[in-house]
Amino acid sequence: MKLDIIANELNWKLLTKISLTKIDIDTGYSGDLLSDVLANCEPGSLWITIQKHKNILGVAAAKDISAVILAGGIIPDDALIETAEKRDLAVFTTEETAFITSGKLYRLLKKDGV
């Protein structure tokens, strides 16, 4: 499912100025332990987390993560957004919790038959 459709449907706010139309998403991963994400997140996933420090970008790069969703209304600093933009990584924020965000994303992807 295209990322722009997902983001629109789930009302996520895009923080990085990058084009979403070419990004296809099959699955997601929720986690705040970086080693767990490194070990278990599928490449190409959407990653839902409440970590907002710059190191999440290294994890995203290592795992070819397509987009990061910061749950619980978390807003990162400008430096993170700037670096993510340079690397073409979509970063969103949502007021909803990681639990609700994961549930809604799961339901949406399921409905789409992914």
Binding site: P43, H53, K54, G58, A61, K63, D64
Partner: peptide
Amino acid sequence: FLDSGESSVVIKDYLKKIGIPHPFIR
């Protein structure tokens, strides 16, 4: 912590450029 983890990004670009398959790079 905040200024680390960058080596992965540089190494990733290097391995990608020389045509190494993605699963190996990961």
